[in-house]
Structures are given as C-alpha cells and as structure tokens.
Design a protein around this nucleic acid. Structure first.
Length: 206
DNA sequence: CGGCTGATGATCT
DNA sequence: GATCATCAGCCGG
C-alpha cells in the first residue's frame, strides 16, 4: 500500500478525454489542475492558478500565420506541450488545445507550488514561495521545463504531465491577456480569485 | 506596491 | 531589422 507523506498530495493523471475540446473551456478548466514534472533529481509539481487562451484565428496566437518550425506543437491534438523561448531568456509552457491540424493553445502563466519545493527553489535561485512560479517564465524555470519538452504528450506516460487533485477550486476570474499587443482587448485570461500565486498587475486580478 | 527600464536572443520577414 | 505571450532591479510614494 502506497503511503503519502503529510505534505505530499495524491495527483491523478488527466486523460485526453478529461480535457474540454475547445480552447476557452480548456483554459478555464485547467485552473485548479496540476502540472507534474518527474526529473532525475526528483519530482516537482504545481497547481495551476492562471492561464490564457490563444485561439485559432487569433492574431495574438503564434499559430495565426500558419505552421512554422517553432509553433508546430500548437497544431498537435489537444494535450500536447508547446514550449518556446520568449525574449531570448524565458521559456513558456503551453498546452495545445484543439484538433490535430488546428493551431491554438493555452499558456500556463502561474502555478501554486505543490511538491518538490526545495528543488524548485534550486532551479529558481530564490526561496520566497510566492515568487517560485508566479509568471510563465518563472514557472517553466521552477518546473525544469526545457525545449526538450516541446511537443510531448501531456496525457501520455511521459515525465511531464497534467493531473488533478482533490481540492476545491476558488471562483475563477477573467481579464484581458498580459503582455500582448494584438487583440489586446479580448478577455481570455483566467485566474483563481484570491490566490497570492497569480501574476500580473493587481488591477487585473481583483 | 506600482511603475519604469535595460538585458537578451530566438524567430520570422 | 523588427518584434516580442518576460524578468530582475531600481526608484518613488
């Protein structure tokens, strides 16, 4: 019989059928779900508290101008990782969100640290819990996500996967997306109200 | 805490 | 050559 330490939480893998088959529903439904990464040095995990939807036909979506070497993972069936480099320094973790051939995804912008906190602190070089994975670049760093994870199936048997835990999800708020210039007025950001682990200016997360 | 700035390099035109 | 789905650090209130 498996024993769970007091501080550890049971996380069950999400199957593809657990993911809503459209981008907006997926972005909303990922709030409260969990990202787990099993590394050689240990497992890290975080509870998703903030996402953004990037739709098919959306000028802000990287897939807007069609497939390229960078964005090809956005065109995979929903539930695959799309990882890319932003501003030359930060990696962004997304989940592809539509049928194969349709380019769209959900950016995971922030997680509440769950397991492997010491390892995440090491990855980030900071110890303040609130700052470990608040913001998409920090999140990828904390979870040890690299370009090697681009295109992996998050619903498969791999080391990087999505899960759920038995815990209440607070009310989900919405706002415009952060840090973009195209289609900047569309309300496609989702966050858990009241979570201190959400990124962005406070006025966007009342 | 909010606002601003410079660093930084991959990606595509 | 332009454009970034960002971050850390610094400054003022």
């Amino acid at each position: 019989m498996t024993r769970w330490s007091e501080l550890e939480v049971r996380v069950r893998r999400l199957r593809r059928r657990d993911l809503p088959p459209d981008t907006v529903s997926l972005a909303r439904s990922l709030i409260g779900k969990v990202v787990v990464h099993q590394l050689a040095t240990g497992a890290v995990s975080g509870r998703i508290v903030e996402t953004e939807a990037y739709l098919a036909g959306d000028p802000a979506c990287h897939a807007f101008r069609g497939p390229t070497p960078r964005n090809r993972a956005l065109f995979l069936e929903r539930g695959h990782a799309y990882v890319y480099v932003a501003y030359g320094t930060s990696l962004m973790l997304n989940v592809s969100s539509e049928a194969r051939g349709v380019g769209a995804g959900v950016l995971i912008r922030a997680v509440e640290p769950l397991g492997g906190v010491a390892l995440m602190e090491r990855h980030r070089g900071v110890t303040r819990l609130r700052d470990l994975a608040r913001g998409p670049g920090r999140l990828a760093s904390a979870l040890g996500v690299t370009l090697a994870e681009d295109g992996v199936d998050l619903c498969g048997p791999g080391a990087l996967w999505l899960g759920r835990i038995d815990r209440r999800v607070g009310p989900v708020g919405t706002s415009v997306r952060i840090g973009i210039t195209k289609a900047a007025d569309r309300v496609l950001r989702f966050y858990e109200r009241g979570s201190p682990f959400v990124s962005g200016p406070r006025r966007l997360s009342p």
